[in-house]
């Protein structure tokens, strides 16, 4: 098999934060050992609750943050060891669509110059070609030519996200990291933006890392899905596998929490995760999910002990993937 476009191994990012009067240092394990690959032209969905380290992962892949450990390889070339000029051309190949369309556009820059900014920074397009390129990008994402001279605040959220997409496409990247590109948008607008991203992928053959907490959107977009919890991947597999036959108790509870018509609004058959999300500064030992695991509660004592051990690496990060879950009828897991 040929080399994957992007290969991530053992990726970690630990933030040292100082709190309180004593400035006591604590380590936040925002990303704690990720392994995944991304093939050319494919989409990897990254899902998980707020604070599980999705954006941090995206920024690590963009080299906006330096990893604490682990490696990122683009076409087999380690990204961490790039020289300054190599980093500049790496920046051309990996681009990002940001979570918040309101703050990811400079309020004092016209739409045209915002889209032209990557071209200016990389100096690969001759000045006389920039205007044409900007116009064709704007056309591609469904903005009208006269929008070029307007400012971001004159646009709706969906249009701003289109501007962000045009900017990310300007340098013809191989990978675009979409960090919750639609979660700040109206539901009615979400589908349009998601479809735009899909059309662009079909047309240009680029790869996406698609970050989201909305499972329905991920199901629509992704070829592969990685489910994250407290900086670790809980379950990793093809879309059909994750949505059709989820193994990990966390995945199963996430899927069951997705509102669906069949389940009905009043259904009590959902698995609700107990307790609060543990702090990434002080995660549980062994399986990080065990404190909220709906299977853990039903496990016999001797099996529970195993959960305190480190999980072996694999596509399902669970000691007892087939254990029954608390409060869960079989039907609920498949209805999404």
């Amino acid at each position: 098999m040929s080399e994957p476009l992007l290969k991530v191994t053992g990726l970690r990012k630990h933030f040292t934060v100082r709190k309180g009067l004593a400035r006591q240092a604590s380590v936040v394990k925002a990303v704690d050992g990720l392994d995944f690959t991304l093939e050319r032209g494919k989409t990897l969905g990254l899902v998980g609750e707020s604070g599980c380290g999705k954006s941090t992962t995206g920024k690590l892949l963009m080299r906006l943050l330096e990893p604490t450990a682990g490696s990122i390889a683009l076409d087999g070339r380690d990204v961490a060891s790039l020289r300054k000029d190599e980093l500049q051309s790496f920046r051309r190949r990996v681009q990002m669509v940001f979570q918040n369309p309101a703050s990811s556009l400079n309020p004092r820059m016209t739409v045209g110059s915002a889209i032209a900014a990557p071209l200016a920074a990389q100096k690969i397009t001759p000045p006389e070609g920039v205007k044409k390129r900007v116009q064709s990008l704007m056309d591609r994402v469904g903005l009208r030519p006269e929008h070029a001279n307007r400012f971001p605040h004159e646009f709706s959220g969906g249009q701003r996200q289109r501007i962000g997409i045009a900017r990310a496409l300007a340098l013809e990247p191989d990978v675009v990291i979409c960090d919750e590109p639609v979660s700040a948008l109206d539901v009615s607008v979400q589908a349009q933006v998601v479809n735009l991203l899909k059309d662009i992928q079909d047309e240009l053959g680029i790869s996406y890392i698609f970050i989201a907490h909305d499972l329905a959107v991920v199901r629509h977009m992704a070829d592969d899905v990685a489910v994250m919890y407290l900086g670790k991947i809980m379950e990793h597999g093809s879309r059909d596998q994750i949505f059709g036959d989820p193994q990990h108790p966390y995945t199963r509870s996430l899927l069951s929490a997705v509102p669906s018509v069949e389940l009905g609004a009043g259904s009590k058959d959902r698995i609700r995760l107990q307790g609060d999300l543990p702090s990434p500064a002080n995660p549980p030992s062994g399986c990080v999910f065990r404190t909220r695991c709906p299977a853990y509660a039903l496990l016999p004592e001797e099996k529970r002990l195993l959960c305190r051990d480190e999980i072996p690496t694999g596509s399902v990060a669970c000691h007892h993937p087939d254990a029954p879950l608390l409060e869960i009828p079989a039907a609920a897991t498949t209805l999404v």
């Binding site: 820059m109 200016a120 990389q122």
Partner: peptide, 28 residues
């Protein structure tokens, strides 16, 4: 700390153009 500065960094904007084009218009 704004996201658009991070965005500009992500496509390799030089320090000079970061200050002149991205930041100074906002303090004008």
């Amino acid at each position: 700390e704004q996201e658009y500065i991070e965005a500009a960094r992500s496509f390799g904007t030089s320090h000079l153009s970061m200050i002149l084009k991205q930041i100074i218009p906002n303090v004008a």
